[in-house]
Design a protein around this nucleic acid. Structure first.
Lengths: 236, 236
DNA sequence: CAGTGGTCTAGACCACCGG
DNA sequence: CGGTGGTCTAGACCACTGC
């Protein structure tokens, strides 16, 4: 049983998908939606907030709520997905090499959030991603085995980390936080991406949370922005 | 006169910045904040929603609202805001130097989307942004004067481009698309940011759209990621 | 169990938009 | 001006958390 506001936002999404509410047109005003769904205004507004956050509609004060045009292009930076999930929208072939896959103590990754018991074990993954056999990204991941038991025996050549995570984790993979920096490659990274150490790289640092707020995974990713573009769609 | 919920979120941000509410600690429960600020619960929740969206706190059902780790980084990447709008959440002072402000033909910026009449005029802006007098970003913007008449006479030392845009534009500033790359600074950029040409920079390219889909502005921004971090919050 | 946030109601007043 | 969304109140009940 979903909350009422989610049922309403899904009902409206469905009408938009079907074309019953065409792109560019105005949604019924909140007062009408209140009557139609038999709810209070706050509930209608909660549903419209979701659609605004998803970029499906746009609400303008004094005017109304309008259906936005077109599907936004896939972008790495919008929702929490793994790198392979976002790269797979391109037409190029995606392959992975696993350099290291081993169980290590939490202390092996000093930046892991301090709230974690130092006696816990992590799965450490070190991989290279190729697009059409050109190396484009070096990925290092640390996963808490306590929260994703069994993930250490996954074959990461054929399975994406995110897929494995969602299969092994008890709760739900819910949110994340990414930061971007520009860095120069050190020798090891440069060699694996087949570039020189004076090529600037996009460096992405990520922390992934379960729905209860527990940190389940940390990543360091270096990307060659000559080959991989980080793009995002924004709404006002 | 700001809405009450914004005053509350700013008050809480200020307490977090000052260290009165330390990182990792729990905010007072909503009931306490209601009493303290003398408002209804909905208003407190509206303020906390803003802080969650900005990545400053994280709210967990049944547990409370917690202050997230790390300095409150400008979350430049979540919604469409100008650079100053995102940087102004940090505790540092933000200043701007205008290097160039002039009206140029569309042909001056060859990358401007092709749909624009080449006879149109653009406002060309070239600026440097400082945080606590340290140069952190170099910004070049091209704005279609036809869509934002009068913007060319704005004083951009005191006014942010986004503020001026929203004041001059007929429609609404509605959406945008940003891409990130890592680049090395060329001589001019390096000099303005007081760095050497082998320091890697985050290079942000942006196109801004009005609600009717017209391109109103293009930007090229170089940021020194040693001083400005691009952070974003993601949901599954 | 008490405390917390998530949802929902039924009102109110205001600011903005268009004709 | 009427219609729209933005803000705000004062309640209510529920689900989840931790003890």
């Amino acid at each position: 049983m979903l909350p009422i506001h989610e049922q309403i936002s899904e009902a409206l999404r469905s009408r938009i998908r079907s074309g019953e509410l065409p792109v560019g047109s105005r949604l019924p005003p909140e007062s009408t939606l209140m009557e139609e769904f038999g709810v209070a205004r706050g509930t209608v507004r909660r549903a419209l907030r979701t659609l605004n956050e998803q970029g499906i509609v746009q609400t303008l004060q004094g005017k109304g709520t309008y259906i936005r045009s077109g599907r936004p292009e896939p972008s790495i930076a919008q929702t929490l997905v793994g790198l392979s999930e976002s790269l797979s929208y391109s037409e190029k072939s995606l392959t992975t090499t696993v350099l290291t896959q081993e169980v290590v103590p939490v202390s092996a990754y000093p930046e892991f959030p301090t709230s974690v018991d130092p006696a816990e074990k992590l799965l450490y993954l070190d991989r290279i991603r190729y697009l059409d056999n050109v190396p484009v990204a070096r990925l290092r991941n640390w996963v808490r085995l306590q929260l994703a038991p069994g993930i250490e025996s996954t074959d990461f050549v054929t399975t994406a980390l995110f897929t494995a995570l969602e299969a092994c984790v008890r709760g739900r993979v819910a949110s994340g936080r990414r930061t971007f920096e520009a860095v120069l490659a050190d020798g090891d990274i440069a060699e694996s991406l087949e570039i020189s150490t004076i090529v600037p790289l996009l460096f992405l640092k990520q922390v992934t949370y379960l729905d209860d707020g527990d940190v389940v995974e940390c990543s360091d990713v270096w990307m060659d922005s000559q080959h991989v573009t980080v793009a995002m769609n924004l709404v006002r």
